[in-house]
Design a protein around this nucleic acid. Sequence first.
DNA 1: CTAGGGTTAG
Length: 586
Amino acid sequence: MTPSSCSQTTAAAGCLDLATVSDIISHQHWSRLKVLAGITSAAAAAQLLHLLLDSPHADPPTVRRLFRWSESHFHSSHPLPLHCRLLHSLAAAKLYSDLRSELHSLAKSGRHSAPSILHSLSISSDTRRRGASLSVIADMLVLALVKNSRTESALEAFYRAGDYRCRLSILSCNPLLNSLIKEGRIENVEKVYKEMIRRRIAPNLITFNTVINGLCKAGKLRRAGDVVEDMKSWGLSPSVITYNTLIDGYCKKGQAGKMYKADALLREMVSAKIHPNVVTFNTLIDGYCKDGNTSAAMRFLEEMNRQELSPNVVTYNSLINGLCSEGKVDGALGLLKEMEDSNAMPNVVTFNGIVLGFCKKGMLAEAKGLLDDMLERNLAPSVITFNTLIDGYCRSGLMEGATGLKRLMLGSGIRPNVPTYNCLISGFCRNGDMSSATKLLDEMEENSVKADLITYNVLISALCREQKTAKAVKLLDEMQEISLQPSHVTYNTLIDGLCKKGNLRAALNIRARMEKGGKHANVVTYNILIKYFSGRGKMDEANKLLNEMLEKGLVPNRVTYDIIKEEMVERGYIPDIDGHLCNDAA
DNA sequence: CTAGGGTTAG
């Protein structure tokens, strides 16, 4: 049975039958292909590819080999419809690893949008079982886009796939959800999750854990709890990962009493016979440390040892950071020693914590000594090590030392980043050395390090301190030009600067801009304005503002109390021993 | 394929 005659192969394959051509391709005799079959252009290759795809005898790997060779040989990419025919033929032959790698390069190239790929696939002439094969291809396409960090396109492909009645799987949907979380796009996580259920793509344990994680990261703890109920209704039980995720959510995003809730979750998991693991303890230890309760954290360390769960480097790092932020560097050094005697070897994060501890106490020689220790131990310092030290030097007013450290970091092959510049600029500003600060801004520009919110806040506060409020307002304009969202700090700093200069009208104007920018006046904003009026003896105005803030549900704080003490006492406010403000009437 | 640790303003 001869596959084809000369007349069928025509100009594209010269006067060879497709079996011979296939043979030449599978042996990669490309020069013979050019000479004998006349494949001397991308167009000729494309024509031959179509012939091979039409023929029931050419096998897909051979087609793919010719496709790849001709694209690289003629330095041009084939049209999308041809590419789609290749994808269909690979899918029909169930050559999934070839299909995956084709889709990977298609996703990587970024030449085509997700909708155009799906459209082209849907009208491709190939395969009788197009529906099933389209689903597999679309599923792999979404995955390939996710893996190539093209999350937006992956999301688009996810939605379009539904229009073509493709059945996607959790193999692509779970990674998509994860990428959306990593990019902080929680709204989309919820939408994709709901759409999955609508399309009857059965979520599995990992899907639920992922969605719960996204909601926790966004601080939507109640919604996360709802999803736990969802998973139960699907017959799935929360796992240790589910609990750890929820505990971390409460530790990082919970309101007052959050550690109590985290602890309640721990008890709940234990009574559900789910054993806490190292991550559970690490999460709780970090939570208690961040809550300023290192003694509770240390008790959990002891509990770990009792349960024969070995603390690891993460456990110790949380504790060391907690102790250092409370000024207990000695305790941190004790733990460092304990680490060295155990299997948890200190890493760069460990050292960064202790460097910060020393810096906070102004022990710069010790901090710098640790950097030298790291270099001696062949433990590479990171940009954060240098930033921490540089900030320490800046806060002690040692700007030459800080600049020297910047040179040292460059010598170690680490490039300064935004925080590096922010620390230095803030240091120079504190010293009133605006010209050095400005030079650094130019240097950032040269190195294409983009100024961020903190850079602007530092500069605005420095200009306000020097009463150069017009320049400060200009910086606010500039932020909006480059669509950098100003924060409460930005506005409050400006309002404070303008009030101090006696320019109330301008301050109120900034307040109006603040509301327009979607940021509502907070306690700090009111404190600034109340201070302005009470400082001028305008107690009526000050009282009006106090009422206004109460109406908005804002809670006055110790600063408010100190500004208008008499009025606050009259209203029943009393500061407690910790400096917090209480109201016995409330 | 899902969970935990480090720097900069105020």
